[in-house]
């Protein structure tokens, strides 16, 4: 039973983790993309459509990622090339994505699909309790863990990662040093779109193999919250996503036990817990100030 509960938490956490990791990289470059929900839902419809049209869930994943990137490029063009306000553009992107996904997905509603196959890692997946959790999952789960490691390595151990963080802290200085600010930011935004698309594909291919409108149900917003929650550190995003997953699954368990606590209070627990943890984390001023990208949300236009 414990194994099964852990698996449930992992499934709930994976899309949050993926979308938040993508947004983390975007925000590290100083760009705030509030359109995660919009890109995620496009990934969900793309993933499902690709799977239905080709019968291959892996192609579905690619289509989902591609649609996430496509929407992120629209965002990038507006906020990077045209220097529009990032807050408003991100929100508009969410409205646009929710509408467009509904339109594109109309013919896929009610179609049933194949769940993403599980890739067991021989030998390890039979370990007690953690075996199936760590080594008996679908490919998107493994990717989510690899991306945590990859993003950590990239941000903190490579020259490019250093440049990206420098851009996020002070694009003017970075530009003066000859770093191509907009190019880095474009790539970061596209990475964010790819991750959000992957997260969406996870929803429609693994979490609940189906397509319905608005099936992201606010997960994009939670992902945004997790980035701040994690003070822009990838492994803390991992912890945050699983913490959020655990609290939201835990409240359902509390309900099923029939404890008699109002279900609305239990439903509010994940949000209240997030606020509480955030307050505790942010009390440590040094830690948050070091990690917060100083230029977050501000446009940068290179003067030539």
């Amino acid at each position: 039973m414990l194994e099964s509960i852990l698996l449930t938490i992992a499934t709930a956490a994976t899309p949050l983790l993926l979308a938040a990791l993508g947004e983390l990289v975007v925000e590290r470059s100083g760009v705030l993309n509030l359109g995660v929900e919009g890109m995620m839902i496009m990934g969900a419809v793309g993933g499902f459509a690709g799977m239905i049209l080709t019968g291959n869930p892996f192609i579905g994943v690619l289509v989902g990622v591609a649609l996430g990137v496509a929407l992120s490029l629209l965002f990038g063009f507006l906020v990077l090339t045209l220097a529009t306000n990032q807050y408003a553009t991100g929100l508009a992107l969410t409205i646009f994505g929710l509408g467009l996904s509904g339109l594109l997905g109309e013919s896929f509603i009610g179609r049933s699909s194949v769940r993403m196959p599980v890739l067991n890692i021989p030998g390890l997946s039979d370990l007690p309790v953690i075996g199936r959790l760590l080594f008996g999952q679908d490919i998107i789960f493994y990717l989510s863990i690899l991306i945590v490691i990859g993003v950590t390595w990239f941000l903190f151990s490579t020259r490019q990662g250093l440049k990206l963080r420098a851009i996020g802290d002070n694009p003017q200085s970075a530009h003066a040093l000859g770093i191509k600010v907009l190019r880095y930011r474009y790539l970061a935004v596209m990475f964010g779109g790819a991750c959000a698309g992957l997260a969406g594909a996870h929803l429609s291919l693994v979490y609940t193999p189906q397509w319905t409108e608005n099936m992201t149900a606010g997960r994009g917003w939670i992902a945004l919250a997790l980035v701040v929650f994690a003070s822009w550190r990838p492994f803390r995003v991992l912890a945050g996503a699983y913490f959020f997953g655990a609290v939201s699954i835990g409240q359902l368990h509390a309900q099923a036990l029939g404890l008699g606590i109002p279900s609305q209070l239990l439903s509010a627990l994940p949000y209240l817990a997030t606020i509480l943890v955030l307050v505790i984390i942010s009390q440590n001023r040094r830690l948050t100030l070091i990690n917060t990208p100083a230029s977050l949300g501000k446009s940068f236009v290179p003067d030539r």
Partner: peptide
Amino acid sequence: LKVVWVNDWHNPGLEADAAKVLLDQ
């Protein structure tokens, strides 16, 4: 009978979570 309220009419992810939780119990 065990009951779980998802406080929503249509939320596939949450409904799936509730299903898993009930089955685990």
